[in-house]
Design a protein around this nucleic acid. Sequence first.
DNA 1: ACCTGATTGACACGATGTCTCAGTTACGCT
DNA 2: AGCGTAACTGAGACATCGTGTCAATCAGGT
Lengths: 147, 147
Amino acid sequence: MPLSLDALERRVAGSGHRITAPRRTLLGSMQQLGDHFTAEELAAAAPSVGRATVFRTLRLLQEIGTVCQVILDDGTLEYRLASGGHHHHVVCSACGAVDDFANADIEALLGALASLTGFTIEAHRLELYGRCARCTAPLAATETTAS
Amino acid sequence: MPLSLDALERRVAGSGHRITAPRRTLLGSMQQLGDHFTAEELAAAAPSVGRATVFRTLRLLQEIGTVCQVILDDGTLEYRLASGGHHHHVVCSACGAVDDFANADIEALLGALASLTGFTIEAHRLELYGRCARCTAPLAATETTAS
DNA sequence: ACCTGATTGACACGATGTCTCAGTTACGCT
DNA sequence: AGCGTAACTGAGACATCGTGTCAATCAGGT
Ligand SMILES: [Mn+2]
Ligand SMILES: [Mn+2]
Ligand SMILES: [Zn+2]
Ligand SMILES: [Zn+2]
């Protein structure tokens, strides 16, 4: 279950930004849109809010860690309310489901790789693509049936 | 040292596509542009080639693995001639240098993570951002001097 | 209540790519 | 060497996604 609207608003206020009607509207729409949504979907869901404000708000929420971007398989961008903290995404290429994940081993390994390249790593981007459990099972069934 | 123009052309022909003057021109420009370049830079470097063809060729070369995309820190896309095989990028956020890297441990770890999420992973995207050796040293010197 | 910087909406503009379509070209086949 | 045909190309309209400008409005501290 995601954060309540109140909690989201407190996060905006707490970061030193104002709580305005458009921002409230957008936060509400994001919750209703669910798991993940495009900027365009958000704009459509909140027609009373100007397009520019939709993008400005998405950027603001990203900066304060309330929203994160999901890069899909084909490179298109979606957004999603972030539970908080550093994490990555697993995206189902069949149904579009998105899950968060975080793993200390990966973080450690990435740090170690830094030295190999001579780079000092400051950030990274990692997205996994595949099939969710729900979308894997039917596929297996089909294959079995077909054989 | 990257592949010769001939080798690049053979790769296009070998993949069942035609070798045309525009494609030759673009391959040559890519080599001269060096390490990494934007689609716009490529178009500017090959003014005789239509914009649409620049993008079409970039896509074709990606499909046959001759060109890969680099996602920069700020999300902008660049392209680069690929040495071949699966790999990832380390990007210097100071000077823009790009290096390839590949690491079996990471690949294995990503596979293992799949099971935790219930997903069957088919692909992934990973980019590292930081400072190259050249850009790390001067920074350290500055800090030392300033103290 | 008042002040003032933060925020907004409308809309022009920019960046990055895609689509269409008529004309051209590479190249396998004879 | 000459043909036929599917692959390819350029021009330019169009699509998508996002940013910059600016006058009007608003939130929230005092
Ligand atoms: Mn990470
Ligand atoms: Mn990999
Ligand atoms: Zn799925
Ligand atoms: Zn550097």
